[in-house]
């Protein structure tokens, strides 16, 4: 096995072991979308009518509509959690240990990113399982089709988190950033309402939602759950991933100076 793959498997195993030992983190990650599904969506079912829009071929309940958005919410919160743990690791020093390994820094950061995404995919599937038990039935093959969509969307959100981690000086600042990032990103997207619904209330809001990369992640997942590929969403997600990964790698580059200011 090459040193690259050894490092990758070690980082994945470490993240998996941490995940197993931190069961509270797993449960907490599930509670949030479940509250949205079981309380919020159930309450709004009667109030919000949804017309037939792609990828749906029939009328759907509001609970069915928001499932992809809630899956993306799990990825989003996990990405921010991973970013938080990166800032913590940098302050506590274990990030230094990783970065002094004799491998390219981009590879080490990518391994860290991928490990976080794989953990969040496990949580997304656990949520889909509970939603199934609650009565939300998706096409069986959709559960398989959604896997690459979850990976790509997770990588995009993870790259945004990595970039944030490279720019935040101290752990204490992270809570503020979380509020400024997570809530606007989530609410100004197609996670809770389709674009046409947004357009009814505000054209500007609709445009913001349409530009939000998180909306594209949600739509990529939504289409994949119905075994369809939304190429526009995939393109935006891939582009956002590439841009934020490049920015994050720049931020962690020892020669660029950002690390220099952060790690003092």
């Amino acid at each position: 096995m090459s040193p690259y793959l050894r490092a990758l498997s070690a980082i994945l195993l470490r993240e998996a072991l941490r995940f197993v030992t931190q069961r509270e983190r797993f449960l907490a990650a599930l509670v949030r979308p479940l509250v949205w599904l079981l309380v919020f969506a159930a309450g709004f079912r009667a109030a919000l009518g949804l017309s037939i829009t792609a990828p749906y071929q029939t009328y759907i309940t509001y609970e069915v509509y928001i499932v992809p958005g809630l899956v993306a919410m799990i990825l989003l919160f996990n990405a921010m959690q991973s970013a938080l743990s990166l800032v913590y690791d940098r302050e506590m020093g274990s990030m230094r240990l990783l970065l002094t390994a004799p491998l390219p820094r981009w590879w080490l950061l990518f391994c860290k990113l991928l490990a976080g995404v794989l953990v969040s995919i496990l949580q997304a599937y656990a949520f889909l399982g509970i939603a199934y038990l609650y009565g939300i039935r998706l096409p069986p093959m959709g559960y398989l089709w959604v896997l690459p969509a979850l990976l790509v969307a997770g990588l995009m959100l993870g790259a945004v988190g990595l970039f944030l981690a490279s720019t935040i000086r101290q752990l204490e600042n992270f809570a503020g950033v979380m509020n400024f990032v997570i809530f606007p990103v989530f609410f100004l997207s197609t996670a809770l309402y389709p674009l046409w619904r947004m357009a009814e209330s505000s054209r500007l809001l609709r445009d913001i939602c349409a530009w939000n990369p998180f909306s594209h992640a949600v739509e990529l997942i939504r289409f994949a759950l119905y075994m369809r590929l939304n190429t526009e969403a995939l393109g935006w997600v891939a582009l956002t991933f590439a841009v934020f990964l490049a920015l994050a790698l720049w931020g962690f580059d020892p020669a660029r100076g950002i690390m220099t200011r952060k790690t003092r």
Binding site: R6, A7, A10, L13, R14, L17, Q22, L98, A101, P102
Partner: peptide, 18 residues
């Protein structure tokens, strides 16, 4: 990594060094 055993801490580092 305080949640890992002594042996796992060493194995993790060993893998990072190939």
């Amino acid at each position: 990594d305080l949640d890992l055993s002594v042996a796992r801490n060493l194995a993790y580092f060993g893998a990072l060094h190939g």
